[in-house]
Amino acid sequence: MSEGDRDHRTARLTAAAAARTTSATARARRAITRLHNTGQPVTFVAVAQAADVSTSFLYKHLQLRQEIDAKRGTATAGTERSTAASVESLRTKLATAIDRNRQLTELLEQLRTENEALRSRLLELGTRPPAAQEIRRGEPADKPTATGPQQPR
């Protein structure tokens, strides 16, 4: 390979690299503007994904880095309105959740009371003499139950 051929190839590669850098820089600037105008967070990762560049590319280029830092954490006017709407929406959801929680607490207390009454009734039935329980069920007093034979009386 001759010296002139090498210089020519190097110049072409340098020009191609400069063109890629210019294109990537333009894509990154458009991505920063688009993210900012749509109210999306302007972060290095978001810009890199939107512009199809690497985050290291953004960190290495001082101007892009400054643009991202400047737009980071700032919101457009539309975003402030949507934030206010979402705060109101969250308050409504919270009020609904509190009301539902109150209803469920009342229901739980009602079910606990009912459960206690039923347990008391079962204990009452369990303390009666076995003959009274069997007669009540319509079974003969001397027939063994599923729990085992009856004790002699």
Results as ranks from 00 to 15, higher is better:
1 M>S: 08
2 S>Y: 04
4 G>H: 13
7 D>H: 11
10 T>K: 10
12 R>M: 12
13 L>W: 15
17 A>N: 15
18 A>C: 03
19 A>L: 09
20 R>E: 15
22 T>A: 15
23 S>C: 07
23 S>R: 11
25 T>G: 03
25 T>E: 13
27 R>H: 13
28 A>R: 00
32 I>S: 01
33 T>P: 00
34 R>A: 09
35 L>V: 02
36 H>Q: 07
38 T>A: 03
42 V>M: 01
43 T>G: 01
43 T>V: 04
45 V>Y: 03
46 A>L: 03
49 Q>H: 12
50 A>Y: 01
51 A>C: 04
55 T>A: 10
55 T>G: 04
55 T>L: 00
56 S>E: 08
57 F>I: 03
59 Y>K: 09
60 K>S: 14
61 H>Y: 07
64 L>T: 00
67 E>C: 03
68 I>W: 00
72 R>M: 06
75 A>I: 06
76 T>L: 03
79 T>L: 09
80 E>S: 12
81 R>T: 09
83 T>N: 10
84 A>W: 05
86 S>L: 14
86 S>H: 10
90 L>P: 00
91 R>P: 01
96 T>F: 03
96 T>H: 09
96 T>Y: 03
98 I>M: 05
104 L>C: 02
105 T>M: 06
106 E>W: 02
108 L>C: 06
108 L>W: 07
110 Q>V: 05
110 Q>W: 02
113 T>W: 03
117 A>K: 07
117 A>R: 09
122 L>E: 10
122 L>C: 13
124 E>A: 15
124 E>N: 13
125 L>R: 08
129 P>D: 13
134 E>G: 02
138 G>S: 08
144 P>W: 04
146 A>H: 07
147 T>V: 09
149 P>Y: 09
149 P>C: 08
149 P>R: 12
150 Q>S: 06
